[in-house]
Design a protein around this nucleic acid. Sequence first.
DNA 1: CCGTATCCATTCCGATACTG
DNA 2: CAGTATCGGAATGGATACGG
Lengths: 140, 140
Amino acid sequence: MIGDRWSLLIVRDAFDGVRRFGEFQRGLGVSKGILSTRLRELVARGVLETEPVSDESAYQDYVLTAKGRDLFPLIVALRQWGEDHCFGPAERHSALVENETGEPVGRLEVRSKSGRKLTPSETTVHKLSAQRRAAGRRGK
Amino acid sequence: MIGDRWSLLIVRDAFDGVRRFGEFQRGLGVSKGILSTRLRELVARGVLETEPVSDESAYQDYVLTAKGRDLFPLIVALRQWGEDHCFGPAERHSALVENETGEPVGRLEVRSKSGRKLTPSETTVHKLSAQRRAAGRRGK
DNA sequence: CCGTATCCATTCCGATACTG
DNA sequence: CAGTATCGGAATGGATACGG
């Protein structure tokens, strides 16, 4: 659904307030043809929607839907992982900060409903209805 | 780095305890050639590492490194988004639960360092060193 | 059981030219 | 500015056959 080279980058820029075709295009350095296709797919899949720009324009803006906004934790998770492991301190270009305080947002953590932090090995995927995938030994 | 069709699925299965080549192959239904390439890339990129299996085997296991384990929030974020928006209640196959209680893990949330939940519009990407991308109007 | 090698189809992408 | 059309090349993936 978002597993190509550009879709998630488009969504990320949308979170950053990018709305116009050319803005995505210049910001990402993607060719116009691909961008056109990706925007159309994201709209078709309900991640973005087109919105008539205020008064009189022949064109529209592309804005996140509720479904698209729900990708926020995913985008933040990917950003934090990239900052931690894919860039040295030298080439770190940006940080996600809280508007009010200007402080970087906290680290994403998987927690139980009671609020305890969970490590991967403290969780298990529980099958609801055995389907095709062999119920091979999983978890520990 | 993980932007192809299979890498993240391999990582997900690794979190679920999958370690062997054939186990990945049957579980995902991926062709052996692609799986071989992807595993080699993930090892080269430091997400997985090979580990000699206990006693006497010609082969190795593929296990997550620390870098790979740090993808846990990302995997959970993607899983939750998929459950919320890509499957109806009917075709929901599995749930990530806490081992001790059997209860589903809590929802991932972006929080400030002080613990307050943050919406996308309450955050801004702060540029550390202006680089190539036009400092176009961002955030609100 | 664990891969590699080969072949082929599909998808993805970038560059360019064109329309309104 | 906002796209569409076309082309060629690269990446991706599936199937199959083969070897340790």
